[in-house]
Nucleic acid binder design. Structure first.
Ligand SMILES: [Mn+2]
Ligand SMILES: [Mn+2]
Ligand SMILES: [Zn+2]
Ligand SMILES: [Zn+2]
Lengths: 150, 150
DNA sequence: CAGGTAGATGCGACTGAGTTGCAACTAGAT
DNA sequence: ATCTAGTTGCAACTCAGTCGCATCTACCTG
C-alpha cells in the first residue's frame, strides 16, 4: 500500500536525512521545488510552487528553509545584477559553479561554465590563503543579440 | 574672493561636468564622500558622511545619486556576501576591477587584483559574445587567520 | 505503538532598504 | 535678472526578509 508520495526523494532530502535534519511536509515541498527547478527562482516563486504541493507552506518557512539550504551549501543566492528589483534568486548547487551574465538591455540571463573560473578560485586559495566556500561571479552587459542593435 | 570651496573637485565631479550633468551642493557632498572613501560604504554611512559636509542632504538624494553614479559606471555595488544585513555597499570604480573575499567567521573583507580575472572576463567577451560592462566576483569562506583556528 | 520533547510551523506584527509623488527650490542657460 | 528643466526634501509608501510566540509534529524512547 504505497503512501501518497508526491515527490521522489532527491539529493537534497538525502543530504538532510544523512545528517539527521528533521524532514517535514513543508520542507519536502520546498526541497522538491528546488530539486526540479530549471532556473533561478525568487522567494515568492518558490513559495507559490511549494504551495501547489502543500498548500499550508508559509512565506516565513520558505525563508527559513532557504537559509538552512544556504548554510549547508546546497543552494546559491544570486542578485542577477538586480535587474528586477532588490530581491534574491536561488538555484541548486550542483557539481560545478558557473558564471551568470545579465543583459542590461533585454534582461536575459546566460550561464557559463569555465575552467579559468575554477583556476581563478584556486589562485585565490593559494595566493591569499583563503578557503573558498561560496563564489559568485555576476556580469552585467550586453548579450550577443543586444550588442548588435545599438 | 574665493568661495567657501569645501572640497577639491575630483574625477567624479569632472566626469559630471564633462557631460553637462547638473552639479548641486548635495551632489558635491556625496561625490566627495565617494572620492575620499577608503572602503566599502553602505547608503546610511554615505548619508551620514555627506551630511557632515552639507547638513541638508536627504536619504533619497543619496539613493538617487548612487543610482546616477551606477548608471554612469562610476561606482560598483556590492553585497559582500550579505555578511551584515540585506543592504548594499558602494565603492568607487578605479582602473582595475578586484575580487572581494568575505570571511564568514570574522567578517573581514579582503580585496584581490588578479590578471586571471581580467583574462576570464575577456574569455566571456569572446566565447559568449557578451559585452562585459560590470563584473562582480564575491567569494565567501575563511580568511588566513580564521582558517587555522577551526 | 503510545507518550514526550526538541524542533519546526503559521501567523501577524515588525524592521530596514530602497522608491516615489509632489510642491518647493536652484543651477545654469539666455 | 529671468526663466525653466532638472533636482531636492519630505513623507508616505512598497517590498524583502525577520521574529516572537502559541501551536503543532517528527521522531526518539520505552
Ligand atoms: Mn545559474
Ligand atoms: Mn543583494
Ligand atoms: Zn540582451
Ligand atoms: Zn576571518
Amino acid at each position: 500500500m504505497p503512501l501518497p508520495q508526491t515527490e521522489v526523494p532527491g539529493r537534497l532530502q538525502a543530504h538532510f536525512a544523512e545528517r539527521g535534519i528533521r524532514m517535514t511536509q513543508q520542507r519536502r515541498a520546498i526541497l522538491s521545488v528546488m530539486e526540479t527547478a530549471s532556473k533561478h527562482l525568487d522567494a515568492s516563486q518558490i513559495l507559490r510552487k511549494a504551495q501547489k504541493i502543500d498548500a499550508s507552506v508559509d512565506r516565513s518557512t520558505v525563508y527559513r528553509t532557504l537559509r538552512l539550504l544556504k548554510r549547508h551549501g546546497l543552494i546559491d543566492e544570486l542578485d542577477l545584477m538586480h535587474i528586477n528589483g532588490e530581491g534574491h534568486y536561488y538555484e541548486r548547487r550542483l557539481g560545478r559553479d558557473h558564471i551568470h551574465m545579465a543583459c542590461l538591455r533585454c534582461g536575459k540571463i546566460t550561464e557559463f561554465v569555465s575552467d579559468s573560473f575554477e583556476r581563478l578560485k584556486q589562485q585565490v586559495e593559494k595566493d591569499c590563503r583563503f578557503r573558498v566556500l561560496i563564489s559568485r561571479l555576476e556580469i552585467g552587459g550586453y548579450c550577443a543579440t543586444c550588442r548588435g542593435s545599438q
